[in-house]
């Protein structure tokens, strides 16, 4: 395994320290923007962490849809001759707006906010947060040995038993 920074066939592994740093940055962003909810996920559609009011909100599904949408938009950029991907995606609603943008090549940030909050403010604070996030994520250490620790033989044996139990008679 070559890297812990994602891409096809390569796992993304977020250490405890990284996770805490990301969560802190999201908390700060939430405080500054007064957004309803902020989700940090990866480009493969996994929700990693979120801040704000997630009551009644299916975060995992939202992250999966956002990643799919982001990937589709990147392809649209290519088709129309935009050499880089679009800088952000904005959805304007009657009550809520949504803003999403990439964090490096492997992650994305999704912000849901009330229409009374100015988009300009969201952009300014989000851009600052992204710069900090990218700095943290670039410094991520090699975690390959951690992956083998996570997925040992005992894990697969127990998973197999759990699958048998869950799928029993279905």
């Amino acid at each position: 395994m070559e890297s812990s920074k994602g891409g096809n066939g390569q796992p993304i592994i977020l250490s405890g320290e990284m996770y805490r740093s990301v969560t802190e940055l999201l908390s700060e962003l939430l405080l500054k923007t007064k957004a309803r909810v902020i989700i940090f996920g990866d480009m493969d559609g996994h929700a990693i962490t979120q801040k704000g009011n997630t009551t009644g909100l299916n975060v995992n599904t939202l992250a999966a849809l956002a990643a799919g949408h982001y990937a589709a938009t990147a392809e649209m950029a290519k088709i129309v001759g935009e050499t880089n991907r679009f800088k952000f995606i904005f959805h304007e609603g009657e009550e809520m707006n949504m803003y999403s943008c990439n964090v490096g090549n492997s992650f994305l940030l999704l912000i849901v906010f009330d229409i009374s909050i100015a988009l300009g403010m969201i952009r300014i604070f989000t851009n600052r947060t992204i710069q900090s996030l990218e700095k943290f994520l670039e410094s991520q250490q090699q975690m390959d040995d951690k992956a083998s620790e996570f997925l040992d033989i005992e894990f697969s044996t127990l998973l197999n038993k759990e699958l048998d139990k869950t799928f029993n008679n279905l």
């Binding site: 994602g6 993304i12 405890g16 805490r20 493969d44 996994h46 990693i48 951690k146 997925l151």
Partner: peptide, 14 residues
């Protein structure tokens, strides 16, 4: 694959 060490989560895409 995504592993969140802090939450002890492993996410796999099929």
């Amino acid at each position: 694959m995504f592993i969140n060490w802090a939450l002890q989560e492993i996410n796999l895409k099929i």
